[in-house]
Computed example of a mutant assay.
Amino acid sequence: MPALCLDCLTTFDAGVRCPACGRPRVIAHPELFDLSIAHMDCDAFYASVEKRDDPSLRDKPVIIGGGRRGVVSTACYIARIKGVRSAMPMFKALELCPDAVVVKGRMSVYVEVSREIRRMMDDLTPVVEPLSLDEAFMDLTGTERLHGAPPAVMLARLVRRMQEELGLSGSIGLSHNKFLAKVASDLDKPRGFSVIGAAETMAFLRDKPVRMIWGVGQQTQNALEKTGIRTFSDLLRWEKADLVARFGGMGERLWHLARGEDRRRVS
């Protein structure tokens, strides 16, 4: 089975440890070197920039936001473990994590760092679709000949470069379409690299909750639950025409996504 060391970027047949550096950060998958649609998501981006620029914050729970009457913009993983979430009232966040350090966001700094990351992504492929300052889709189809390495290797090189040059980490999702690439990038954060291949798509999705679908917020989730739809398996029991009649354009989208189908191009 194709395998890749995420530390030294050695490619090899599957094993528990890298045969070159001996480290265990290895990703192995039958389709690892065949997939080319990726989603890169920086790990707790704003908070990570603040910790990078102020080393005294490194091991502390950090919340980005305003005063006690404001809301949480984002938080580092230490604070998230305590239950702090984006858009949470700050007073509630501090009740959950009283030892947190609250830092006022520096948007101009985040924008500049985001531009540096974008330049790194542009070095891999001209087909980059940003979703926000800290995440983007990439289509690396046809780039293996240019780089002399498959997309998986170049993506691992990207996040290593981000760490070495910017002091920031990111997580990669690699799959055969945008929907699944975004799902994959969230499976093993932080510093994750996850793959969802075409052959395993249906089995992977079957028992997952529909809230995993990007764009399905609480309101849509409640509407789906009223019809007994909680998982992808529930969606598969519906005919396309019935979903469209009940949910309009969203119904057709759900029908395709339940089957792991997403024809949107990275643009």
Rank of each mutant, 00 (worst) to 15 (best):
A3W: 02
L6D: 03
C8I: 10
D13E: 15
A14V: 10
A14I: 06
V16S: 12
F33T: 08
L35S: 03
S36F: 00
A38H: 04
H39W: 10
D41G: 00
C42W: 05
K51Q: 15
P61H: 03
P61Y: 10
V62E: 05
I63C: 02
G65P: 03
R69P: 00
A75H: 10
C76D: 14
I78G: 00
A79E: 03
R80Y: 12
R80L: 10
I81R: 14
V84H: 09
F91I: 12
F91T: 10
K92E: 15
L96D: 05
P98T: 13
A100D: 11
V101T: 13
V103F: 06
G105R: 14
G105S: 15
S108V: 12
Y110A: 13
E112N: 11
E116W: 13
E116D: 15
T125C: 04
P126K: 05
V127P: 00
V128P: 00
F137I: 06
L140W: 01
T141F: 06
T141S: 14
T143G: 02
R145W: 12
H147F: 12
P151M: 02
V153S: 08
L155P: 01
A156R: 01
A156N: 04
R157N: 05
R157K: 13
R161T: 15
E164A: 14
E165F: 03
S169H: 05
I172M: 06
S175L: 10
F179D: 00
L180N: 05
V183F: 14
V183C: 10
D188C: 08
P190L: 08
G192H: 06
V195E: 06
I196N: 01
G197F: 09
T201Q: 04
A203V: 09
L205C: 07
R206M: 13
P209T: 09
V210H: 07
V210N: 00
M212Q: 07
I213V: 15
W214G: 00
W214H: 15
G217F: 10
Q219E: 10
A223V: 07
G228F: 11
L235N: 06
A241H: 09
A241E: 15
V244D: 04
V244T: 13
R246L: 15
F247K: 08
G249K: 14
G249P: 05
M250R: 14
L254H: 01
L254Q: 01
W255Q: 11
L257S: 04
R259K: 14
D262K: 00
R265M: 05
V266L: 00
